[in-house]
């Protein structure tokens, strides 16, 4: 009996040790043998924790890079510092393409606010693969039927409604700011630290209107509890054919928060070309298209030149917004 127990205990200790080793081995490079790039395993550095939308995208990309392009890929979650931890992770590695940053459009906000101590020229922005718009959301029993109704009310009652969304000084508040400029009204902003809490606040009537990605309150948007008055895409989204855009209602607002990949500046062109070719195989695959549809993601598919241009114009526009609202000097 004692022996049994001892053996069992030893095994359990062994299992615990094994688990610890398995966890630590995440950081170890694995050998590979393909010719050209990549010659070894590639790391996708996801600048958010596991489980969120960015992580889901990163893991799908890793899975398909292995399946479609025959790469060996590891996903490394490096959350923290509003993305600064993940960015530093690739910046401290050689510019050889083996560390690819998986990141979001909040990069430009982070740079503009001085939270991320790097500049756009420190990156080669390779591809924007997913994007989601913002939308103006109210409960379905709201008196507002169109963006016009909302703007008219806000003009007559400055800051008369509680408007909120995810994060202070982030993408959604930036889109509200654009709407304020275009519609000529004033509004406060009630920040929430998680997008799920925005849905709860709207459903619980703690806020009157929200700026949020349509997928934030997906269940309620689908069953009609939440009504989207306008969405910030250029043309009507294929996922929301009945929701009019801001543009068609006369407000010239367009914007989306994107997710994509980048490498450190100075990565040689032939390596970049290999990465682009591998990503092309991923985006052409049926698996990827199915994933995008299921996730309600638009596929901008901006390549390096357009992506960089987009990021630069985002950065200068956001800087103006942040300064006007006291989020940056």
């Amino acid at each position: 009996m004692t022996i049994n127990r001892r053996t069992f205990g030893t095994r359990m200790a062994g299992a615990a040790l094994g688990l610890a080793l398995a966890l630590s081995s995440v950081a170890l490079p694995a050998p590979a043998m393909a010719a050209g790039f990549p010659e070894k395993s590639v790391t996708l550095v996801v600048w958010a924790g596991a489980g969120g939308a960015l992580d889901t995208y990163g893991r799908k990309l890793a899975e398909l890079l292995e399946k479609e392009s025959g790469w060996s890929v590891k996903v490394d979650n490096r959350p923290g510092g509003s993305g600064a931890v993940g960015v530093s992770q690739i910046m401290t590695q050689p510019a050889d393409g083996y560390n690819i940053l998986v990141f979001t459009g909040t990069l430009t906000f982070g740079i503009a606010q001085g939270l991320i101590p790097f500049e756009l020229k420190d990156f080669r922005m390779l591809r924007a693969m997913q994007s989601e718009p913002s939308s103006l959301a109210v409960l379905s029993d709201s008196q507002f039927k169109t963006v016009e109704d909302f703007v008219k009310y806000m003009k007559e009652n400055p800051s008369g409604l509680k408007v909120g969304g995810h994060a202070p000084g982030g993408f959604h508040q930036y889109m509200l700011y654009q709407l304020m400029k275009s519609g000529g009204f004033e509004s406060g902003w009630i920040p929430h630290d998680a997008s799920g809490k925005v849905t709860l606040a709207l459903l619980g009537k703690h806020i009157d209107a929200a700026m949020m990605t349509p997928s934030t309150g997906l269940a309620q948007v689908k069953n009609g509890e939440i009504k989207l008055l306008g969405v910030s895409t250029d043309k009507r989204s294929e996922f929301l054919p009945d929701t009019p855009t801001f543009k068609e209602q006369g407000y010239d607002i367009e914007g989306a928060v994107w997710r994509g990949i980048a490498v450190k500046a100075g990565t040689p062109d032939d390596v970049v070309n290999s990465i682009q070719a591998a990503v092309d195989k991923v985006t052409a695959s049926a698996d990827w298209k199915k994933f995008q549809t299921e996730q309600f993601q638009d596929s901008p598919d901006w390549k390096e030149e357009e992506f960089t241009k987009r990021a630069e114009s985002d950065l200068s526009n956001q800087l103006e917004f942040l300064k006007a609202n006291g989020y940056a000097q």
């Binding site: 939308a53 992580d55 889901t56 997906l218 269940a219 309620q220 069953n223 299921e294």
Partner: peptide, 13 residues
């Protein structure tokens, strides 16, 4: 995240 990977979105539906 795991549900989404299976093409499902949580919620009353």
């Amino acid at each position: 995240g795991a549900l989404i990977m299976h093409g499902l979105h949580p919620g009353p539906q």
